[in-house]
């Protein structure tokens, strides 16, 4: 479904991605791991066509999106549902208006039907009680849930893209978000999650890619990740071992 072919991307003359190539099939559950500034979010933005690579090709269902116009990208974007870091809810709209945004924009649904649909979506992500709250009144976990509900209202995606969905959340909320991510992928819909929290990544993903110094240093399954000898990955895995040791104690 997604192919990155020798993709390079720089920001302010700093090369973030150096010749990245990989492919992702429909239904795959992938986690991109890596430190801050390693280009994890950049990969999601490249998939959505929000930024263009300096060189290389990005194929979505066989079509190169790097030369598409903003209008042509609309159909490509509809194949995905992206949830940005911290939700990116519209500050000026309450939860109901945020979730109803796309329904109002693209459908001619009557107001009662929109309200029903919004309630149904909020029920799916278990935040129905927050329907009248403003984004600043929501907790971090509720923010992400509302953002997921809003993205579901926008489209019936083939794949979900999550940008640091559990960052800044307490373990209980992080675990709930992981469960929600797994629930939404039950009917064969894949997802890409970018995170630096390896503990959450191993809960949800089957395939792991580790980014370091602008390159994919590891692309493998859970066993490959856990037995990787690369020092940078070892540092990341120490979080996992620490959590495991705590459990044993």
């Amino acid at each position: 479904m997604i192919v990155f072919d020798a993709v390079r991307f720089s920001y302010n003359s700093r090369e973030i991605l150096k010749d990245i190539s990989f492919s992702v099939g429909a239904g795959e559950r992938i986690a991109f791991l890596g430190g801050s500034g390693e280009g994890k979010t950049t990969i999601l933005k490249l998939i959505m066509g929000l930024i263009r690579p300096d060189s290389g090709r990005i194929l979505i269902d066989g079509e190169d999106i790097t030369c598409k116009t903003e209008a042509q990208l609309r159909d490509t974007r509809m194949k995905f549902s992206i949830v940005f870091q911290e939700g990116a809810l519209f500050d000026s709209l309450n939860v109901k208006e945020n979730v109803a945004f796309c329904l109002r924009e693209y459908t001619k649904m009557p107001e009662e039907q929109i309200e029903e649909k919004v309630k149904e979506l909020l029920r799916t992500v278990d935040v129905e009680r927050a329907i009248d709250l403003m984004p600043e009144e929501l907790s971090g976990g509720m923010h992400r849930r509302v953002a997921i509900a809003r993205s579901l209202a926008a489209t019936d995606p083939k794949m979900f893209l999550y940008d640091e969905p559990t960052s800044g959340l307490d373990p209980v909320n992080a675990d709930n978000i992981c469960k929600l991510i797994l629930d939404l992928s039950r009917n064969g819909k894949g997802f890409i999650i970018v995170t630096h929290k390896v503990f959450d990544a191993v809960k949800v993903a089957d395939r792991f890619m580790f980014l370091y110094d602008g390159r994919v240093r590891l692309d493998g399954n859970r066993e490959d990740l856990l037995h990787a000898t690369i020092p940078e990955i070892q540092i990341f895995l120490s979080e996992l071992r620490y959590t495991q040791e705590e459990k044993n104690v």
Partner: peptide
């Protein structure tokens, strides 16, 4: 602030 909070990107994603 909308740019930094990815709200503008969200609008683009929604078409």
């Amino acid at each position: 602030s909308m740019v930094l909070g990815h709200q503008v990107d969200t609008l683009r994603v929604f078409g």
